[in-house]
Design a protein around this nucleic acid. Sequence first.
RNA 1: GGAGGAUUAGCCUAAUUGGUAAGGCAGCAGUCUUGAAAACUGCCGGGUUCACGCCCAUGGGGGUUCGAGUCCCUCAUCCUCCGCCA
Length: 430
Amino acid sequence: MLDINYIRQNPEEVAKMLHDRQLQGDEPRLRRLLSIDTERRELVQKTDELKAVRNRRSKEIAELKKSGSDSAGQLIADMQSVGEEIAGLDSRLSALNLEMEEILLALPNRLDPSVPIGRTAEDNLVFGEPVHFPHPLEFEVKNHLELGKALGILDFERGAKVTGAGFPVYVGKGARLERALINFMLDRHTEEHGYTEVFPPFMVNRDSLRGTGQWPKFADQVYHMEEDELYAIPTAEVPVTNLHRDEMLSAAALPISYAAYSACFRREAGSYGKDTRGFLRVHQFNKVEMVKFTRPEESYAALETIRGHAEAILCALEIPYRVLLLCSGDISANAAKCYDIEVWSPAERKYLEASSCSNFEDYQARRANIRFKADGKSKPEFVHTLNGSGLATSRLMVSIIEHYQTPEGGIRVPEALVPYTGFKDISPLG
RNA sequence: GGAGGAUUAGCCUAAUUGGUAAGGCAGCAGUCUUGAAAACUGCCGGGUUCACGCCCAUGGGGGUUCGAGUCCCUCAUCCUCCGCCA
């Protein structure tokens, strides 16, 4: 959520941001917001004056009653009408506040100046050089679906029977490989990158969804348990960032860094037809997420750090990847700046998104009311929040299966994972 | 699921039959000091104002009232006991 004071003082900047994000259609709502704000402020002034009168008179009534005088009757009658007037203005005010909040919650974040201006994913900037690792695949490569099925480590059909399409089952060494990946990444982040491990709830309430920005705008992408008014988390970002909702953090504690494994649930409503085969788009997948809370002036350095931590995982696994700096038209509404890390799929012959590292600045902190005090004399400030996937196992699994396949149709286990799997390869014979 | 109790600022705690939230700790700045501690003074939730000030804020939402921390309704969370389950 943006600061209404910032919007009031820089309306043309906000309009340009909407334009850069290809959201020109939101501009009428921005104008509506500004007019609500003006009316609201006038109304506040008026009711404040009336309330000041009421407070003063009420004190007089108290004094009169205390002194045993009966002369308070006229005053009380007068205040009755003042009270009615206040109630009328207040109800108008709360309607305006409600509408203002609705618009504010739906308005996207500002963009960092370093974000390239562009219309679609085509305009994303390749950041730095793609990173290669030599994998001798001098034979006809199979895709992860064929290999996974032939090796008996992935079972999409039974997953579809038990739950539905997009809920894969990992079997045998496949399950072990998945668990190894999760443990490997958590260990790296906690032991080498300085994160505190968190194992969060996989369901959250609405306040948490609103805090990180999945509600109200993206509510249709989230599984909803109506009877209990709970939502299945689309990412650990939601429960972990909301750990500190409505808290005043001690300045000395910043930055706070959490790494969390969670299953992630996404309805992916309306997204069938594109990259939907196998693991490329599923309703449930596993992910290790990094979340940071920083002082405002430190957030952009922290973004680079998080990206480095995600890249370190890929380097350790020797999986080829590249980094994209998302353009204004493709970046998510909540983020001020975002890198995507994409891994190379030799079977699909294209890059697949495996990680997204974002700086939300104070956009989430303002929604979730996460503040800190720099020192004793300064006012509470909103922290900056960041997160990055570190990383999504489903996409990594595709990479590992495809890059580490052997001409015989088996899979070697990446060196770094062997201590976690307890085996070095998955052979066609099982 | 049932009964009872609780929720006040970063933390801890007060407030008479309903009369408009008092203190303490921590933190910051200043005075004093060679320096520090102690002591003293000021600041220390949000909005508005050049400022004085004014308004809002006692877990969330609503109600009664001239006036609500206090009374009523409702929801959330925590604690205790009972029941149920693993």
